[in-house]
C-alpha cells in the first residue's frame, strides 16, 4: 500500500553538497566582486585627476577632459582604421577556410591563423617598428606626392613610417585571429540545407554565399567586428612601440604628428608619472575601460542568441 501522507519527497541534505555548492557560488561571486573592484579602484584612484585644477595636469591641460580628449580621439581613430582593414579581410579569410579551401587542409589553415594569436603583442610591436614601418615609409612618401588629392594623405610625410596608418595595420593583424575565428564558426553554422538548396537552384558558389550564408551570419559578423574593435581599442604595446605620438586632433595618416591612444599613452608615461599625472593616467584607463565595456557588452548582446562562440574558447 502507498502511504498517502508522505507528501513531497525531500532529498537528504548532505554536508558535502552544501560545502561544494556554496564554494562554487562564492567563486562565481568573486568574479562579480573583481569586476566591481576594478571599477571602484579605478574610480577612487582617478578622482584627483578629474577634479584637478588647471596647471597641475600633464600637457598643460586646463582640465581632465581637455587632457583626455585627444587620447580618446586617437584611440577611436586608430581602432576605426584597423577595422577598415580587418573586417573585410577577416570575412574573406573565414569564408576561405569555411567554404573555399579543400576540406582536408581547412583545419590546418585554421591553425595557421590561430598561430597569429599566439604571437605576444610586444613582438608585434617590435616587428611593426623595425620591419613594417621602414618598409612602408617609401610607399607613404609616394602616396604623399602622388595621391595628395585624397585629404587624409596630405601634410608633411613621416620619414620613419611610424604613423597611425602603420599602427592601424599592425592592430588589424593583431585582431584578425579572433575575428576570423568567430566569423568562421558562424559561417560553418549556416544550415546545410539552405546552402544545398541554393546550389540546386543553379546558384554559383558566390551566389550561394550571398543568398544563404551571409544573411544567416550577419549578426555574427557584427559581433565579431565588435569583439575585434574591443581588442583594437585596448591594445597597448604595438601602439606604444610603433607610433610617433603628439597631442593633436588629426585625421592625417602619413605625418609624424599622430594622435596618441589612451593605452599607448599609459604605457609610455606610467613609469615616470606621479601625483596628479598618475591619477590622470589611471582616469584615462577608466575611460578606456568604460568604452571597451560598452563595445563588448553590445557585441555580447548581439551574439548572445548564439552562445557557442565567445572568443574565449
Amino acid at each position: 500500500m502507498t502511504t498517502e501522507s508522505a507528501g513531497r519527497i525531500t532529498a537528504k541534505i548532505r554536508r558535502g553538497d552544501r560545502v561544494f555548492s556554496t564554494s562554487t557560488v562564492i567563486a562565481g561571486s568573486i568574479i562579480l566582486a573583481i569586476l566591481a573592484a576594478v571599477a571602484i579602484f579605478l574610480v577612487v584612484q582617478s578622482f584627483p585627476a578629474v577634479v584637478a585644477k588647471s596647471g597641475t595636469l600633464p600637457n598643460a591641460a586646463p582640465n581632465f577632459w581637455v587632457y583626455v580628449g585627444p587620447l580618446i580621439f586617437g584611440t577611436i581613430w586608430a581602432a576605426a582604421l584597423a577595422m577598415i582593414f580587418a573586417v573585410p579581410i577577416s570575412i574573406g579569410v573565414a569564408l576561405f577556410i569555411s567554404h573555399y579551401a579543400p576540406r582536408r587542409i581547412a583545419q590546418v589553415l585554421g591553425y595557421i591563423i590561430d598561430l597569429l594569436a599566439a604571437v605576444p603583442s610586444v613582438v608585434f610591436g617590435l616587428w611593426g617598428a623595425n620591419v613594417l614601418a621602414p618598409a612602408l615609409a617609401p610607399f607613404y612618401a609616394w602616396l604623399n606626392t602622388n595621391a595628395s588629392w585624397f585629404p587624409l594623405f596630405q601634410g608633411s610625410v613621416s620619414a620613419t613610417g611610424r604613423t597611425i596608418l602603420t599602427v592601424a595595420i599592425v592592430l588589424a593583424v593583431m585582431v584578425l585571429p579572433i575575428m576570423t575565428a568567430v566569423n568562421r564558426e558562424i559561417f560553418l553554422q549556416t544550415p546545410r540545407l539552405h546552402e544545398e538548396a541554393a546550389l540546386a537552384l543553379g546558384a554559383t558558389r558566390w551566389e550561394m554565399i550571398r543568398t544563404a550564408v551571409l544573411p544567416f551570419a550577419r549578426p555574427g559578423i557584427v559581433s565579431a567586428s565588435m569583439l575585434g574593435l574591443g581588442r583594437a581599442l585596448g591594445e597597448t604595446m604595438a601602439v606604444a612601440i610603433v607610433l610617433s605620438p603628439a597631442v593633436v586632433y588629426s585625421f592625417l595618416l602619413l605625418t609624424p604628428q599622430n594622435p596618441e591612444t589612451i593605452a599607448g599613452n599609459i604605457a609610455l608615461q606610467f613609469s615616470e608619472a606621479s601625483g596628479v599625472g598618475l591619477s590622470s593616467l589611471i582616469a584615462s584607463g577608466l575611460v578606456l575601460f568604460v568604452v571597451t565595456f560598452i563595445v563588448n557588452a553590445i557585441a555580447r548582446y548581439v551574439v548572445g542568441r548564439r552562445k557557442e562562440f565567445s572568443g574565449a574558447n
Binding site: 576594478v38 581599442l233 585596448g234 591594445e235 589611471i282 563588448n296 548572445g304 572568443g311
Partner: peptide, 21 residues
Amino acid sequence: FLVDVMTGIPSIVAGLFAFAL
C-alpha cells in the same frame, strides 16, 4: 554575461587595477 565581457577588458586596465589595488 560578465565573464564574456571580462574577456574583453584591455590588458592595461587590468594592470592599472592591480597597481591601484
